[in-house]
Simulated scan of single mutants.
Amino acid sequence: MATFGYIRVSSTGQEIARQVDALKAAGVEERYLYVDKMSGAKASRPALNEMLGKLREGDTVVIASLDRLARSTKQLLELAERFNAEGVSLVSLHEQLDTRTPQGKFTYTVLAAMAEMERSLIRERQREGIEAAKARGETGGRPRVASDKVKKAIALYKSGQYSVSQVAAEAGISVSTLYRYLRRNNN
C-alpha cells in the first residue's frame, strides 16, 4: 500500500512548494508526487493519468485541496467512483476529508457540489461583466493598431530599405502585428 500525492497548479508561473510541503508532511514520499501545471478544467492531465495508472487496491491519494484534483462535480465524482471501485482512498488536507470514513465519503460529495457551484457563479459573474461592458460600448480583445501606424509600417516595409524589426520599431508596432497586417494585405 502506497501513499500517492497529486499536485496541480493552473499555470507554469505558479509555485508548487506549498503543496509539496503539505503532502510530504502528510507522509507522501517524493517519488510518489505527481505534478500537473495546467488548468483543472482540462480532463486529460498527464501526471494525473500516470498516477491513476499506478494506483492499486489499498493505496491512498493525498491532495492539498479538492480544487487541485478537479474543477467540476462530475470530475470529482468520476474520480471518487474510480477510487472506490479500485479500493483507493482519498485524503484532502484543506477540507480535512478522508474517504476511508463514512463521514468523509459524505463530505466529499457535498464539497464537490459546492466547488462546482462556485465555479458556475464565477462564470456567471464573468458573463455579466462582459455583457455590462458591451452595453457601455466596450469591446473585448486586443486593441486595434491605429491605421496610420499600419500604413507607415507597410510603406517602410515595401521600400525594402529596412529589416522587419526596424520597420516595426519605427512604426511603433510589434513584429507579429506587422506580419499579421502584411498577410492580410497580401504584401
Rank of each mutant, 00 (worst) to 15 (best):
K24I: 13
K24N: 10
A25N: 09
A25C: 05
A25W: 06
A25K: 15
A25Q: 14
A25S: 12
A25L: 11
G27A: 05
G27C: 02
V28Y: 10
V28T: 01
E29H: 15
E30I: 08
E30P: 05
E30R: 15
R31L: 06
R31E: 14
Y32G: 06
L33I: 08
L33Y: 10
L33G: 01
Y34W: 11
Y34P: 12
Y34T: 03
Y34N: 05
Y34H: 12
V35W: 00
V35A: 00
V35R: 07
D36C: 04
D36E: 09
D36M: 00
K37Y: 04
K37H: 10
K37V: 06
K37C: 03
S39W: 04
G40F: 15
G40R: 10
G40E: 02
A41V: 11
A41G: 14
A41T: 13
K42N: 07
K42A: 11
A43Y: 11
A43W: 11
A43E: 13
S44L: 09
S44N: 07
S44H: 09
R45D: 08
P46T: 09
P46N: 04
P46C: 04
A47P: 11
A47F: 05
L48S: 05
N49S: 14
E50N: 02
M51V: 13
L52F: 05
L52Q: 01
L52Y: 06
L52R: 06
G53K: 06
G53M: 06
K54D: 13
L55G: 03
L55T: 13
L55N: 01
R56Q: 15
E57T: 11
E57S: 12
E57C: 00
E57D: 14
G58A: 15
D59Q: 02
D59I: 03
D59G: 03
T60A: 08
T60N: 00
V61T: 05
V61R: 01
V62A: 09
V62P: 03
I63G: 11
I63D: 00
I63T: 04
I63K: 09
I63N: 05
A64C: 03
A64N: 05
L66D: 03
D67Y: 01
R68F: 08
L69A: 03
L69R: 00
A70M: 02
A70N: 00
R71I: 08
R71M: 05
S72L: 08
S72C: 10
S72P: 05
S72A: 13
S72T: 15
T73H: 14
T73C: 15
T73I: 14
K74T: 12
K74W: 07
L76Q: 06
L76H: 15
L76W: 07
L77M: 06
L77N: 14
E78P: 12
L79H: 13
L79Y: 13
L79S: 10
A80P: 06
A80N: 14
A80L: 10
E81A: 10
E81S: 10
R82W: 11
R82Q: 05
R82N: 11
F83Q: 01
N84T: 15
A85K: 14
E86K: 02
V88F: 06
S89M: 08
L90N: 01
V91C: 07
V91S: 07
V91Q: 07
S92Q: 00
S92I: 08
L93P: 14
L93F: 02
